[in-house]
Amino acid sequence: MKNICLASVLLILAFLSTGCATHTKKLSKVREDIVRKSEAQYSELNSIAYSSIADKNYMPRTVAEEQLRLVSSYDWTSGFYPGALWYLYQLTQDEKWKDRALLYTQKLDTIQYWEGNHDVGFIMECSYGNALKEKLSKDFEAVIVQTAKSLSARFRPNAGIIQSWNASKKWNCPVIIDNMMNLELLFHATRISGDSTYYNIAVSHADTTLKNHFREDNSSFHVLNYDTTTGKVLGKYTHQGYADNSAWARGQAWGLYGFTLCYRETKDTKYLEQALRIADFIKNNPELPDDAVPYWDYNVPKTGETPRDASAAAITASALYELSTYVTKRKSDYLDFANKIMLSLSSPKYFAEAGSNKGFLLKHSVGSLPHKVEVDVPLNYADYYFLEALYRSKNLN
């Protein structure tokens, strides 16, 4: 009887391992084809964008009314296009992508002095941060440190957080879950400069977010409003989600990615534990479709017309690849989930046909449905995290 039970257990484990290996094998087979298709798409996108490079609006962000929408360097998404170019270079080692990435990265130089937006972390880490992986000019290190100094001006010590948007009639001191992503810049600046000020601010923000931003089921609120004198939370809301108490899909992905990178930089297990809890919330969510590409909000009533959000899926996949390197137990579960997402995003349902989508890679992302902005369109950050996930999956293999 014992032998029969043992044999049954081994058979189940073998079956599960085969399933995980199958997803990995499938992605390995199609990865180079995806890279070639991505190069072709971005060659077209680059040709359209390059014609406008002399204009202040030069970074490709999305498609609006069948036209490529370009934004200035002060748009929160401006770092994703050069970042995507850096990942194309890392995936191909073709110098043309490096040259293009460097050209667009240096267009963001003045952002290092901007104290008016918390998303300077997104902008500069995706561009200059990726450039530094290629061991380019030491001047780029100074840019990262100066940007961290600018971002630190938004730190509110009594509340222990970095303020996201500026104060308004609606908000006293709003902090969004997205802000976890900007902490990577602060950690990077500490490694470069040796100044622990940036590290301490990042840890304070992460700790306060961990304390206040999550519900019992480990889903995240989108916006918290703080009193900067007392540190009291004045209210918990959404801005881009379905409802104040709903789980906005991209917000959950930001949280997963943010706490994963915090563990990488600090090795504090409380961040790893939170990342794992968020990963499980996403993976086991009964509202997650079979192809693992979520609707724009997990709690929105679903119809045949409810939009998916490919950007949330791409961010999640990239985070899962890194998260899988920090665990042994259930490592294959997270890898399998990430590979499943990437296979879905690489399918014709989400990956654009050659020559379409104005050169963007992914279709079907959502910026802010409540504001009727960028609904069911390509988005530059969806492409960025898709290429990052592709690069990470290749390195893992």
Rank of each mutant, 00 (worst) to 15 (best):
residue 100 R to M: 11
residue 371 H to W: 11
residue 125 E to V: 09
residue 44 E to P: 08
residue 381 Y to G: 01
residue 172 N to P: 08
residue 70 L to D: 03
residue 217 D to I: 06
residue 92 T to R: 03
residue 366 V to C: 08
residue 238 T to D: 02
residue 324 S to G: 05
residue 278 I to M: 01
residue 240 Q to T: 05
residue 203 V to P: 06
residue 7 A to E: 12
residue 131 A to T: 05
residue 159 A to E: 02
residue 193 S to T: 06
residue 143 V to G: 02
residue 240 Q to W: 01
residue 319 A to E: 04
residue 215 R to I: 00
residue 354 A to N: 13
residue 269 T to Y: 12
residue 350 Y to M: 09
residue 99 D to H: 12
residue 378 P to G: 07
residue 345 L to T: 10
residue 354 A to T: 15
residue 284 N to A: 02
residue 50 Y to C: 09
residue 233 V to H: 05
residue 251 G to M: 00
residue 317 A to N: 04
residue 292 A to S: 14
residue 160 G to H: 03
residue 301 P to E: 10
residue 335 L to K: 02
residue 177 I to Y: 00
residue 122 F to Y: 11
residue 29 K to L: 12
residue 180 M to A: 03
residue 199 Y to H: 15
residue 303 T to R: 04
residue 119 D to L: 04
residue 61 R to P: 05
residue 114 W to L: 11
residue 370 P to I: 01
residue 69 R to W: 09
residue 367 G to D: 11
residue 378 P to T: 11
residue 297 D to W: 01
residue 374 E to V: 07
residue 268 D to L: 13
residue 35 V to G: 02
residue 320 L to H: 01
residue 63 V to D: 06
residue 131 A to D: 05
residue 149 K to I: 10
residue 112 Q to D: 12
residue 255 G to A: 15
residue 190 T to P: 08
residue 180 M to G: 02
residue 246 S to I: 03
residue 181 M to D: 06
residue 259 F to M: 05
residue 368 S to E: 10
residue 12 I to L: 15
residue 201 I to M: 01
residue 194 G to Q: 01
residue 324 S to E: 03
residue 27 L to E: 03
residue 378 P to K: 09
residue 281 F to S: 00
residue 246 S to C: 04
residue 396 L to P: 03
residue 8 S to Q: 13
residue 189 A to V: 00
residue 365 S to F: 07
residue 22 T to G: 09
residue 76 W to M: 04
residue 162 I to W: 00
residue 233 V to K: 04
residue 175 V to M: 07
residue 396 L to F: 10
residue 3 N to W: 10
residue 385 Y to G: 07
residue 95 E to L: 13
residue 324 S to D: 04
residue 349 K to T: 15
residue 109 D to S: 14
residue 135 K to L: 10
residue 351 F to H: 13
residue 354 A to P: 14
residue 76 W to E: 03
residue 101 A to Q: 08
residue 186 L to F: 01
residue 368 S to Q: 10
residue 300 V to M: 02
residue 378 P to W: 08
residue 282 I to G: 00
residue 221 F to Q: 01
residue 359 G to H: 00
residue 77 T to I: 05
residue 125 E to L: 11
residue 339 N to S: 12
residue 374 E to F: 08
residue 322 E to R: 13
residue 124 M to E: 11
residue 172 N to E: 15
residue 153 A to G: 14
residue 285 N to D: 05
residue 107 K to C: 12
residue 233 V to A: 02
residue 151 L to T: 04
residue 124 M to L: 15
residue 326 Y to L: 10
residue 291 D to I: 05
residue 64 A to G: 09
residue 1 M to E: 15
residue 269 T to A: 14
residue 316 T to S: 12
residue 54 A to T: 14
residue 240 Q to P: 00
residue 319 A to T: 06
residue 10 L to N: 12
residue 106 Q to V: 08
residue 277 R to C: 09
residue 137 S to Q: 11
residue 323 L to G: 01
residue 310 A to V: 10
residue 377 V to L: 06
residue 272 L to Q: 05
residue 40 A to M: 12
residue 79 G to W: 04
residue 290 D to L: 13
residue 108 L to F: 08
residue 342 M to K: 03
residue 173 C to G: 05
residue 207 D to L: 07
residue 249 A to L: 02
residue 101 A to N: 07
